[in-house]
Computed example of a mutant assay.
Amino acid sequence: MNRYSINEFIEKTKQEDKGEGLFELETPRMLEVNLQSQVWAKAGAMVSYRGQIKFEREGILDHGLGKLFKKALSGEGTSLMKAVGDGKLYLADQGKKISILQLTGDSIFVNGNDLLAFEPSISWDIKLMRRVAGMLSGGLFNIKLEGSGMVAITSHYEPLTLLVSESNPVYTDPNATVAWSGNLEPEFVTDVSLKTFLGRGSGESVQMKFSGNGFVVVQPYEEVYYSQSSQS
C-alpha cells in the first residue's frame, strides 16, 4: 500500500464496530450511538447517521412546564433533540473530547454546555446558578442527571477529576468546571484580590467552592457562555 494513498487514509480512519453497546467512542471526539429506540442529544451535535433515524427538536412540553420555566429563566442557548429510530448516529461538539459515564442509580451534575447525549432512562433537571448569573457572560446553569443509563459529556482537551473531602475542599473557575458528583452543592465565593490577574469584567473573581465528599471535573480551558439573547 502506497504511503499517503487514499486507500491508506481510508484504512486508518474508517469506522469500526467495537461491540461496546449503545454508546461507543469511535474516536476521542466522535460518539457513535447504536440506536435502537431513542436517545436525547445536544441540538446540532449530529455529524452523520445511517439507517432509519428521525430527529425531533424538543417540544415545549416534552419535559414538563417546570423545566420549560427554568429554561426560560436561565436564558441558556443549549437545547436538546430527540433521535428516534434504528441505525448508527454520530455526534460531536466542536471537536471537544468525549467521556462516557455509566450511571447505576447515582447522580451527577453536568455543565449545560458540556452535556452531549444521554439515554431516556436517565431523569434530569435544570439547576440555575442565580448567584453567579450576573457575574459571568451569559450566566451559568447545570443539569442534574440521575438514574441508570449512559451519559456522554464533553470537555475541551483532557478532563481532570479532583477528589473532594471534608478536610480538603476544592475551588474551581466556573468557566473551567465540567461536572461534579450529585451529592455536592457548590458555593460561590469571590476574591477581589485576583481581579488584576484574571481580568474579570465584573471586577470580581468568581470561584466555585466544593465541600464535602465527592469529586469535581475540570478542563484546561475557560469556556465562555452565551445566552440566547446574545446569540445572533
Rank of each mutant, 00 (worst) to 15 (best):
S193V: 05
K144A: 08
K88Y: 07
V192E: 12
S193F: 05
L68E: 06
V39K: 02
G21T: 04
E8P: 03
I60E: 11
L25N: 01
E8T: 06
K127R: 13
S37Q: 08
R131A: 10
E11P: 03
V110S: 01
V47H: 11
G147A: 04
S107V: 04
E26P: 01
L101G: 02
S48M: 10
D93L: 09
S74Y: 01
D106L: 00
K12D: 13
M30F: 11
A176P: 02
E158V: 13
L198F: 14
G19A: 08
S148H: 08
T190F: 15
I6E: 12
G149M: 05
A72G: 12
P28S: 08
M208Q: 06
Y4A: 08
S99V: 15
I126L: 15
R57I: 11
A41M: 15
G21W: 04
V47M: 14
P159V: 07
T154F: 03
S227Q: 08
I108A: 04
L25V: 03
H156N: 09
F118T: 04
S74E: 07
N34C: 07
Q52M: 11
A41I: 12
E11Y: 11
E11K: 15
S230A: 15
Y157Q: 12
S74M: 10
K88D: 04
E158I: 11
K144H: 06
L31N: 00
Y221A: 10
I98C: 03
G203T: 05
I143Y: 05
A179N: 07
I126D: 00
E24M: 04
R50Q: 15
Y226E: 10
P169Y: 01
L140Q: 05
Q102M: 09
W124H: 13
E20L: 14
M208Y: 00
E8V: 06
P159S: 06
E26A: 14
T172Y: 07
F210L: 10
V218I: 15
A176G: 06
M150R: 13
F118M: 13
V170R: 06
D114W: 00
T27I: 08
K82P: 01
S155E: 02
W40V: 10
G19Y: 08
L22G: 02
M129F: 14
Q231P: 00
H156E: 12
